[in-house]
Amino acid sequence: MQRRFIKPTPGSRLFDIFNHLFMVLLCLAMIYPIFYLAMLSLTASDVPLTKGYLIPPHVSLENYAQVMSNHYIGYGFVNAVRRTLVGTAFSVAMMLLTAYPLSKKYFPGRRFWTGFVVFTMFFSGGMIPTYLTNSQVLGLDGSFWVLILPGLINTYNMLIARNFFMGLPEELTESGRIDGAGELRILLALILPVSLPIIATLALWSAVSHWNAWFDSMLYFSDPKQQVLQLVLRRIVLEGSDDMMNLGSAADEMTTVNPETIKAATTMVATIPIVLVYPFVQKYFVKGMVVGSLKG
């Protein structure tokens, strides 16, 4: 960090104190709902839920046991991890590959191609035409790749990456060209090592998006064993609820409902894995990589 040289002026110190204080308050404000959910998920079943508790009188893991005992959780987890890893890898690679040419001013038809991709951000067929294209024209119904390919490039994110590339010094590319390298080599050997922060960002966004996705899984797969975790969890919550349109139907009158505690436990199970990813990605947010490659 660049603060090695700070002259500890009183103003500076005061700022630091307030800053840290502010951060602490921020954390308290933000952690409250997760804390509340965590407590709810640990609440034993003999505790009434209409009374509010900060910490429940009886704590138990039974909610988690019930969620995890669902037959499909294991499959859901594996499917989600698989899709997240493969999807993120391909997406990030593809987005970088697309952003780089668009960032170069001499890319032929640059304005046209930029318009070409931006247009798709606004005009799309909608749920049914997309579904029909993917399933019938491209034959992806029921295939693992339907989770990866349609969402391969998030244009929005890709453009941010493009702008990041545009902010890199032109000399970087030029020094590579002087040495006779082709564009691909320049990209791989020169640009990417310096772009770790944006790569990490793209990876993070992509991973979270894949991890949280469930709608496509629902549309294209009918076998419960092929569903992703989020859908399995959604179903657990819905299986245990009957606030659907069918109130009064005899069958609904016989079903027993999952309490709120199960909902809380499923949210925790869904959220914790992906939240833990950030600390690992953090180390790629490292400073000053641009400098190194310019010197000499």
């Binding site: 749920m127 049914i128 579904y131 029909l132 399933s135 019938q136 709608f215 629902m218 549309l219 009918s222 959604r234 179903r235 819905l238 299986e239 659907m244 349109m245």
Partner: peptide, 19 residues
């Protein structure tokens, strides 16, 4: 049995009909 997603009944059944 053609399963229709309970929580997204309309979307789920619409796509089946469309197909």
């Amino acid at each position: 049995i053609i399963y229709i997603e309970r929580g997204n009944w309309n979307e789920s059944i619409s796509t089946k009909f469309a197909k």
